[in-house]
């Protein structure tokens, strides 16, 4: 089971987290309909690294972005998301 380094809590078991979607599939609310649907449905689904949005649902409930390898499950980078990390 993957160990995910929550930026708020430290390393925690993957079972505390939920996967939401890929970073590049976030649909801006101002996108035109056709572009929005392309963003939503067309996924790279690589057999390699991908930027993903997860949530520490059964922990601090914070959101994070992982760069994760989908074959090895190696997590290359983690960064928090949300208002707390705005400049």
């Amino acid at each position: 089971m993957m160990l995910i380094d929550c930026p708020h809590c430290g390393p925690r078991a993957q079972e505390e987290f939920t996967y939401e979607r890929t970073r590049d599939s976030v649909v801006p609310l101002d996108a035109a309909p056709a572009a929005a649907m392309a963003t939503l449905y067309a996924r790279a689904n690589p057999r390699g690294e991908e930027d993903e949005i997860w949530r520490h649902t059964l922990g601090c409930r914070g959101w994070l972005e992982l760069r994760r390898h989908r074959m090895t499950h190696a997590i290359v980078a983690v960064r928090p998301l949300g208002p707390a990390v705005l400049p």
Binding site: E20, L29, R55, W63, L81, P83
Partner: peptide
């Protein structure tokens, strides 16, 4: 609950 948190934190962190 998940949806509102998603909107608040990921879609609209600036609000």
């Amino acid at each position: 609950a998940q949806h509102l948190s998603w909107l608040r934190n990921v879609m609209a962190p600036h609000l």
